[in-house]
Structures are given as C-alpha cells and as structure tokens.
Computed example of a mutant assay.
Amino acid sequence: MLSVRGLSAGYGGMMAIRSLDLDVKAGEWLALLGPVGAGKSTLLGVLAGLVPARQGEICLDGEDIRFLPPHRRLRLGVALVPEGRRLFSGMTVRENLMAGTHALADPAIRRRNLDRVCELFPVLAERTRQIAGTLSGGEQQMCAIGRALMASPRLLIIDEVTLGLAPLVVKSLFTALVGLHEQGITLLTAEQNVPLALAHADRGCVLSGGAIVMEGPAKVLRDDPDLPRHFVGY
C-alpha cells in the first residue's frame, strides 16, 4: 500500500531521517519502534504531509504523494492521530469528531462513521456534548482516534497511542486497535512500549538516528537479542 524510498527530512539544519526506505502492506499492522529522538514523529509527520520531505518518494498504491498537502492525502485514505492528541479543547466531543469528516461529502457516510466510532468507544457516545478539554487523557486519546476514523481511512497512522496513560486505558485502546486491524484497516503505529507493540503488530521496524536499523516479523523481532541495545530502559 505504502512505499517509501530514499526519504530524508528535518528541521532547519538538522536531518531527522536520512535516506529511509519503508514498506507498509495493505491490511497489516506495522509497529514503528525506537528511542526518543529517533525520528519516529518526523517520519509520521512526513507521511501525513505535515512535515515536508527534502528528498525521496512516498508512494500510495503506486502514486507518488510526496507533494500532496495533508487534506489531499486524507481524501486518499491516509489519516494521522498525532502525538499529544491535538484536539480542539474548547469544542465538544461531537464537534471534534465531525471535524474529521471535512473530506467526506456524503452525509450518510458521516452518520455511519459517527455510529461506528461511538460503538468502538461507548464513552464518547455518552459525552458527545462534553467539552473535549475536560475529558481524561484516555478519553481524549479515544476522541483523537475517533476523529481520524471519521475520515474513513485505509491507512491509520498513530503517534504514541499509550503515552502517559494508565495500564487499564492502554489495554482498552489496544483492544480497539485490534478490532480495527481485524476490520482490514492498515495500521502504522509509533510506540514506546516495545513489548506491547510487538505483541499485537504483524511486523516491526526499529528507527534509530533517523535510519531503520532492524525490521522483521513482530514475533521474530521480539526475541532478537540485539533489540534491547537500541533502547534506553527497555
């Protein structure tokens, strides 16, 4: 589905990712792993169109989308849940969710997607009129994921889904992601919790210093003795 070749990007004079190659197959769950500062968020931002690529190709179903703006990529089915959730904190839960539908012209699809999100996260159905900024951290993450799902994505990119959340909430979120994966949505998730990510993903790749240093099936990668040396506190 997604093919990245020779991708480089950065900020100012600093290169965060360098000549990176990456493939994401349709229907798979790919876990993007790596220590803080490895370039994970930069890579996901580049894929979503929020960070410009300095060189390389980003192909979706064979079409180079490198120069497409974020809203055009969203219409092609690429949706990002950013690190820190980035909700409109002064708006209601419903308003935040509906903000994810601006790429959809059909009101029936919008209603269907809203029902789907509320079924996936029942707590959001109970709090559609609540101001998003007053939700708990876990509920805000559910709202952020729900907002991305409102766009009917084929490729759902999530940056640090479990960051700062309680174990019970983490378990609930991963249960939801497993359900989305079973429905055929392709997942690309950046995650600090390495064991949890590799326990659920089909495949993993480790980013360090802006380059992919390890990749393979999740079960194989999980047992690789070289894996821990790429992390601090793993």
Rank of each mutant, 00 (worst) to 15 (best):
R129W: 07
L80E: 14
G13T: 10
C143Y: 02
V78L: 15
D226W: 02
A197C: 08
R5D: 10
V213K: 06
L124Y: 02
V24P: 04
G216K: 07
I212D: 00
L156W: 09
L87H: 04
A144T: 04
D21H: 12
A16Y: 11
V161S: 06
P69F: 09
T189E: 12
G146M: 07
A148F: 03
R94P: 06
C143T: 05
R72D: 07
R129Y: 07
L30N: 01
K40N: 08
L173K: 12
T175P: 04
D224E: 02
R54N: 00
I158T: 02
L43E: 00
L168M: 13
V232C: 09
T42G: 08
S136P: 00
V232K: 14
G39F: 09
L135D: 03
L221P: 01
L74H: 00
A148D: 03
V170D: 12
A151K: 08
I185P: 14
S19F: 07
G6C: 01
P107H: 06
F231M: 06
P195N: 12
G49K: 13
V78S: 09
K25D: 00
L135Q: 02
L173S: 12
L97V: 09
L165R: 02
L163Q: 15
E119G: 01
T92N: 08
S172R: 15
P195M: 13
L97I: 09
Q55P: 01
A144I: 06
V232H: 10
L97M: 15
L165Q: 02
G34M: 14
L114Q: 09
R116D: 10
L165T: 09
T42V: 07
V170Y: 08
D21L: 06
V220R: 09
A125V: 01
R229N: 07
G77S: 06
A31G: 10
S172V: 08
E215D: 04
D224G: 00
R154E: 12
P35D: 02
L80T: 14
A38M: 08
V169L: 09
Q55M: 09
L22Y: 04
R94A: 14
A108K: 15
G90A: 15
V170H: 10
E63F: 06
Q192D: 08
G184H: 14
L149Y: 11
P69K: 12
R86M: 03
T134C: 11
G133I: 05
L104S: 04
D115N: 12
L124E: 05
R203I: 03
V93K: 06
A9T: 11
R75S: 14
L227A: 10
S136Q: 02
G184T: 15
G77V: 05
E119Y: 12
Q141S: 09
E126T: 08
M91S: 13
A26H: 11
A105C: 00
P70W: 10
A125M: 05
L155W: 13
R66Y: 10
L165D: 02
L33C: 10
